[in-house]
Amino acid sequence: MKIEGTQKIAAPRDRIFAALIDPAILQKCIPGCEQMEKTGDNQYKAKLTAGVGPVKGAFTATVSLQEIIAPEHYKLVVEGKGQPGFVKGSGELNLKDAGSETEIQYTGDVNVGGLIASVGQRMIQATANMLAARFFKSLEAETATNSPASSTGT
């Protein structure tokens, strides 16, 4: 399943890129991510509670950052397993300056397996889109020029 789109965030490209490779910020942006623990270079182990509305499941996941070309490109790969099945997502993000803002183009590939794949067919695409939207919304909150988080410089 593909997800793609563009997102504009009112923050300089460098700051956004820095946020994208910062595990502390990533943890806040990845929907439902409760814990992230470094296991190697750009490799993390994470605990997620992901889902929609009341339908949620706990996943243990690996998060890895690949193809890092600061400040324009990187790939985020998340693989999670849990009682409701497994989720594998990879997204390539390309950052461009757009005036004072930054435009992020993303294309992602999401595969789900197990229970969620076999019973959630009609909602999976929408869920994936929604989770992507949440990711960027949080990213915006963390980095936008007027946001408190951005001034702390994390």
Binding site: M1, N111, V112, G113, G114, A117, S118, V119, Q121, R122
Partner: peptide, 14 residues
């Protein structure tokens, strides 16, 4: 079955 072999018509909802 989707491209990874998941059975996506897994219930009578689909």
């Amino acid at each position: 079955y989707d491209e990874t072999g998941q059975l996506v018509t897994g219930t009578l909802m689909d």
